[in-house]
């Protein structure tokens, strides 16, 4: 399918890019790795007047230790760089695991961290060709007032299907957003809106520039598990990221459990933290944690796999992710 017509711009600096985006007022899109964006363009899900390439913004491609001992990752860093980075592997294993689960190697070679975090939400009634979509009334996400996935649905529940975000939320990451009038750093949890129609807080003129991860201590363990049908390529049908810190006695000091691909944004399970902190891991505790995650996950019938199956799998994946984390494989 042919691409729609648009102007292609290559700003030399982040500031120039922000200005163009601001002037475009929503009609200009950002192209990073393009692995998801190009598909959306061909389907006419976006018909921007202009597309700006971030290729020239090579200053945004880096993984380095921050002054506080944490990790900073530029938005243009490829997923391939992420999965191969010793800095990531050493203390932030959940992130490396999540990166390895994305797409297939040729996709990870070009797909970027920023692009993955800014993925649009997806729905099997939305991610279709223009011809397909035109045969039915516009859904909420297309500006209409119906939902094709849920009978009498009153808002858009398109799914956020990124793999990295749950891992980064579990690590307590923040993002640095650069705009025309300056920059701000917000927790990644606040980056996502929970609204299927507009999944993140970026406004015209904003660019996600960097991910910042707090320092990790030596006894922090992480695990990521992903539900997919094939051994590659698939977006997560459910994802589970966990980060656990243990103390010298082997009891859990800190724990964060985050679900992916069951809601319009990554979904934290605070009940899991409550259950886990101060405890040593047992099979019955693991069951309780998995049950809390199951209770929180409410996927709806908007992907190619049955929603009740996806929900059941959350329970399985939670146990496996925690198991992977504490076994040290993470």
């Amino acid at each position: 399918m042919q691409l729609p017509r648009f102007d292609f711009l290559q700003p030399r600096s982040l500031q120039e890019a922000c200005s163009i985006l601001r002037e475009g007022n929503g009609k200009v899109s950002v192209l990073a790795g393009g692995t998801a964006f190009m598909v959306a363009l061909r389907s006419r899900l976006h018909t921007p007047s202009a597309v700006i390439s971030t290729k020239a913004l090579s200053e945004l491609s880096y993984i380095r230790e921050a002054s506080d001992g944490g990790l900073v990752i530029g938005a243009m860093t490829t997923l391939e760089a992420l999965e191969n980075s010793p800095l990531v592997a050493n203390g932030y294993a959940v992130l490396g695991q999540a990166a390895r689960f994305v797409g297939v190697p040729p996709i990870r070679h070009v797909a970027t961290v920023g692009g993955n975090l800014c993925l649009d939400t997806r729905c099997i009634f939305y991610n279709q060709s223009e011809f397909w979509r035109k045969a039915r009334p516009d859904c909420f996400k297309l500006g209409g007032d119906v939902c094709h996935a849920i009978d009498k649905g009153r808002r858009c529940l398109a799914v956020y299907q990124g793999d990295l975000a749950p891992a980064l939320v579990a690590l307590g990451a923040r993002v640095r957003i650069v705009g025309v009038s300056g920059e701000k750093v917000i927790p990644l949890t606040q980056f996502y809106t929970g609204n299927g129609e507009k999944p993140n807080v970026l406004e015209p003129g904003d660019i996600l520039a960097e991910v910042q991860i707090p320092p990790s201590s030596g006894n922090t363990w992480g695990g990521y598990e992903k539900l997919r049908v094939r051994e590659g390529m698939d977006f997560p049908l459910a994802g589970v990221a966990v980060s656990i810190k243990t103390n010298a006695n082997g009891a859990i000091d800190q724990a964060r459990l985050v679900l992916g691909a069951v809601a319009p944004s990554p979904l934290e399970v605070p009940e899991a933290t409550e259950l886990l902190v101060g405890q040593k891991l047992t099979d019955s505790l693991l069951e309780s944690v998995a049950q809390k995650a199951y209770d929180r996950a409410r996927p709806v019938a908007n992907l190619a796999v049955d929603a009740s199956y996806r929900r059941k799998m959350v329970r399985v994946l939670v146990k496996r992710a925690i198991g992977r984390a504490v076994s040290g494989n993470g």
Binding site: V104, V229, E231
Partner: peptide, 16 residues
Amino acid sequence: QNLNANFLDYWFPLST
């Protein structure tokens, strides 16, 4: 309407 007339949602096996 065919819900999965594409290679993402129609599960054609990968080499893996």
